[in-house]
Computed example of a mutant assay.
Amino acid sequence: MNDVITNILNHRSIRHFEDKLLTDEQISTIISCAQSASTSSYIQAYSIIGIKDKEKKRKLAELAGNQGYVENNGHFLVFCADLHRHEIIGEREGKNVIPTIESTEKFMVSLIDASLAAQNAAIAAESMGLGICYIGGIRNNLEGVKDLLKTPERVIPLFGMAIGYPTKITDQKPRLPLEHIYHEDQYEQNREVYVKQLQDYDNLISSYYEKRTNSVRNDRWTDQMAKMLEKQTRMYMKEFVQKSKMDLQ
Rank of each mutant, 00 (worst) to 15 (best):
S103C: 11
N120W: 04
K106Y: 11
H86V: 13
Q119H: 15
D113G: 04
H84T: 09
K95C: 13
G129P: 05
M128F: 12
K106I: 11
G94I: 09
P99M: 01
V97T: 04
G129Y: 03
A117G: 08
K106H: 10
P99F: 01
M128R: 14
E105A: 14
A114R: 06
S127L: 03
I89V: 11
N96D: 08
V97F: 00
G90L: 01
I88A: 10
L111A: 00
M128L: 13
L116P: 06
M108S: 08
N120G: 09
D113A: 04
I89F: 08
D82W: 06
D82E: 04
L130M: 07
I89H: 06
A118E: 05
H84P: 03
N96A: 06
G90P: 02
I98G: 10
I123A: 14
V109T: 09
A81I: 07
L111P: 02
T100N: 06
I89D: 07
Q119V: 14
S110F: 02
P99T: 03
A122S: 15
A117M: 08
D113N: 05
A124Y: 02
A114H: 13
V97I: 13
H86A: 05
L83I: 13
V109H: 00
V109G: 00
T104S: 11
F107H: 11
I89R: 06
I123V: 15
G129F: 01
F107I: 04
H86I: 15
S103W: 05
E91Y: 12
E126K: 04
T104Q: 06
S110R: 05
R92Q: 11
I88N: 08
K95L: 07
A117C: 12
S127Q: 04
E102D: 04
I88L: 12
I88F: 10
A81Y: 12
A118F: 12
I101H: 01
T104V: 07
D82L: 02
L130S: 03
A114M: 08
S115K: 13
M128V: 06
H84R: 00
T104W: 09
E105W: 09
K106Q: 13
I123S: 13
I88R: 13
K106M: 09
A81C: 03
M128S: 06
I101Y: 00
E91A: 11
A114F: 10
A124T: 09
A118G: 14
S115V: 13
E102I: 03
I88K: 14
N120A: 08
G94N: 14
S127M: 11
I89G: 05
V109Q: 00
A117V: 14
F107Y: 14
Q119S: 10
G94Y: 11
S110Y: 04
E126L: 03
E91C: 06
A118R: 12
L111I: 10
E93G: 09
L111D: 01
S110D: 02
F107K: 08
